[in-house]
Amino acid sequence: MEFSADQLDALREIVNIAMGRAGDRLARLLGCFIELPVPIVRFVDAPDVREAIRSMVRIDGDVTAVRQAFSSVAPGECIVIYGDASVHELGDLVASDATEAGAPRNEVLLEITNLLVGACAGGIGEQLGQELSYSAPSIIVANARIDEVLDPANVPWRTALLLEVNFRIEGRTFLAHILMFWPESAVSRVRESLDGFLADLG
């Protein structure tokens, strides 16, 4: 399951470039400065996933989590976690119906998630020369404790590759935690893609 040092480096570089591009695109779209700090890449075993999420996300209060699957050669799934405060700020971020003040909260959440996942996952796919397809986003939990997002007893994988990116808008409290998972069944394909990327470089 492990990646070689080269492969890990390649993955980090790809992710950095991808997130940089994603940040630019989102900034242009939303008309504000986006902060996308350096993503964290790690492998996680199913029993540890709750702790991993808790330590990455660090939200005490209630959260709402939206999931969306993506696929090209390596199928994975994004979970985007929003804290309470962020959910309240959503209304003005995406004009989903220009005249209707306060579009339904769920609709806005799903749109923002689609935006973020498309930018981040799509950005990585772009670096790897792959065209991605996506499933419709859906809400996993709303106004729940962070531990309710994933139940380690109920996931179809034992180990996963996990990438965490925090999406922040300058001058606002809005913060979305983007967790990208590739289950072990997909990891070998990710590794192949990385090898392809490395081969193209050198």
Binding site: R25, N114, L115
Partner: peptide, 14 residues
Amino acid sequence: FVLQNFAFSSWRQR
């Protein structure tokens, strides 16, 4: 067209 990405609408929203 602008984002060059998929968009979705679920029966739950609309």
